[in-house]
Structure formats: C-alpha cells, structure tokens
Simulated scan of single mutants.
Amino acid sequence: MLGLLYLAKKKMNYMQNCKAIKRKIIGVLFGVFILGLSACSNIKEHKTLFFAHSLPVTHPVHKGILEMQKLLNEKSGGKLQIKIFPDGQLGSEREMLELLQIGSVAMTKVSAASMSNFAPEYRVFGVPYLFRDSEHLFSVLEGELGKKILEGGSEFLLRGLCFYDAGSRSFYTLDGFVKTPEDLKGKKIRVMNDQMSVQMVNTLGGSATPMAYGELYTALQQRVVDGAENNVPSFVTSNHYEICKYYTIDEHSMIPDVVVVGTKFWDTLSETEKGWLQAAADESVAKEKAYWKETVKENMEVLKKANVQIHYPDKSLFSEKSKPIMEELMKDPKMNTLIQKINTY
C-alpha cells in the first residue's frame, strides 16, 4: 500500500514538473518569436509594439485601443505600429503585466485593481464610493494627480500611459436583488483577485470569492458562486446576463482601466517615438469614453430585452457600511494624503 502511495506521489510530482517545464518552454519560444518579429521589424525600418489584453473585440475598451493603433500609425508615418492580441490570448491581466516587466510584451490594458498588486498607489481606486460621479473621477484621472499615479508605476517597470473609462461596478446575482447590504449575507460573490475588492464584499456582508474572469460563466452555471460585480458592458459581453437576471446598480466602485507600457520597451524608444506613443494614447481617451457611453446605452436595451430586472438601491446604505475600508486605508500616511487630495477635486 505504501509502495503504491509512493509511486502515485512520484507520478504527481513528475506531472507537475512536466507542466512547469512546458510553461518555461512556451515562454522561451514566445520570447524567440517576438525577437524574430522584432528583427523583421528592424529590417522594414519600423517597430512593432505587441499589445495584449483580456477583453473581447466587441468591448468598447478594445475599440479605444484600435483608435490608439490608428493614431500611432498616423503620427509615426508607420514607423511605430501596434499589433493587438485580445481575448486573453497571452494570459490573465497579472500574467500580462509580468510579461511587460520582463520585456516580452510591450503594452497591455488592465484594470487599475490589477495594477494595485504591483504599484500600491492604484489601491485608492478600489475604495468604495470614493468618487462622487464619473465627472469627479475623470477630473482626477486627467489632472496632475492622475499623471503622477501613471508615472509612479515606472518604479515597478510598468509605466501608465492613460486611463480608460470602465464605468462603475455593480452587483448581479442569480437569485434576487441586492437591495441592501443585508441581502449579501450568505452569498458567494466573485471578485477580482485584488485585496480591496475582497475586503469590499466581505465588509458589506457577502463572501468574496476571487476567481479568474474566464471561469466565471461556468461557475455561475454550476452555482459555484451566487453572483458577481462588474460594469454594464462586461456584464453583457461576457453573456453573464443569460444566467443572472438580477442587476442591482449600486455603483460601489469606479475602477478605471489603465493602458500600460513596460519600461523595458519604453526605454528603447527615442524621445520622438515616446512622444508619438503618448500622444496617441492621450487622444484615444476621448474616443474610448464616447464608445463606452454608447455601448452602455445599447447594452441596457439588451438587458431589457433579455428580461434582466434592474434595481437602483439607496446607495447610502452601502456607502455607510463600507466606510471602514477607507478609514483603514487612511491609516497609511501616503494613502491618507492621496484620498484627501481626491476629495478636494
């Protein structure tokens, strides 16, 4: 019996080692692939930026990235080009950020929540009800404070170029609305793998369940979780509305998306090339915001036709219950200063 257990354990270790080796081989081959393409780019006298993200091509943020691609091509006269890898082809948000850090990929788009795992200033965007509305949010994002946060990521080899509108996040569930925080009791709610998101749901009374976004549809089908929280376009493009028929628009957080370039790639660019890239990113923001607004309007009609029930709760019940999160964060002097600055906008 002991012999069989030993052999089983040995086989399991062997399989795990094989998987690890396979991942390393894939990483090496991908690096060689990129170097090969880069070499071809040099021969053609242009540079290609590999831009990976996890969203579907129908998403308004992807459309914003397409605008950036077009603008960069125009500004550089084709000397600097973007090749996009959507739909999580190169991995999760965390994996893509790690690829940027080692220089295997040039750019990505991630949630500010994912960035907070690398650059601590981004944690502030996860504070529930910190921003009064979208106008307040973008006055911060597009002001000096927003620029400082974007540039601060360079210390961790991840330089932010601009913020994209990602709307506000609200709860959607399988059974009944979340009209008050009490309605979250006993409910397992999927959240991003982010400390602030976990803390937010737990503080409101639910059971936060971190899970990869790509696994969520099946998890909802099998009732592994009772619901999730996200913005309207993500709720629709993920097809989660086919399963969850209750959408409570409590708008507990406004976490923007961030366009990020790895400093390892950024440092290879000339000042002129950096100017082209930054300008293309900045100018794409207005287009992305317009796409977002238009998509939300269209998606609300999709939800209506799909018989998804919408509820607008008393937000004060949620904001009051979540206050301890901000109070705890403000014990950190750096976060305290940041929050106070945001409140003055």
Rank of each mutant, 00 (worst) to 15 (best):
N307E: 15
K331E: 08
Y312P: 09
V259C: 02
K19V: 01
A166H: 10
G126I: 05
N13T: 11
M115K: 04
E93M: 06
K334H: 12
W292F: 10
K274G: 01
G275L: 04
M12K: 15
L130M: 04
L99S: 12
L71I: 05
S316G: 02
M330T: 15
S54K: 04
I249F: 10
L220A: 08
L5Q: 08
Y312D: 13
F118I: 00
F33I: 09
L184V: 03
V296C: 09
K185P: 07
A113V: 06
F163K: 01
Y172R: 08
T263A: 03
V61C: 15
P56D: 08
Q199F: 10
M200T: 14
E298D: 12
P60T: 06
V261L: 02
F30D: 06
N42W: 13
C40T: 15
V57K: 15
V57S: 08
I34C: 05
E67T: 15
K323M: 12
L157S: 14
G146L: 12
I82W: 05
V261Y: 00
T248H: 06
I255P: 04
H136V: 10
L4E: 11
D183M: 06
F235E: 03
D267P: 03
D194V: 05
I149N: 08
I249W: 09
D165R: 10
M335W: 11
K341F: 11
K83N: 05
E135M: 12
G186N: 04
G3D: 03
M192G: 08
L145Q: 04
A39D: 05
S104W: 09
P333Q: 04
R132I: 11
L157F: 13
G143V: 02
V28E: 01
L72Y: 01
I255R: 07
W276D: 01
Q69C: 08
E67N: 11
Q222R: 14
K148A: 07
L277V: 06
A212Y: 02
A39P: 04
D257S: 10
L100T: 00
T218G: 14
D257F: 02
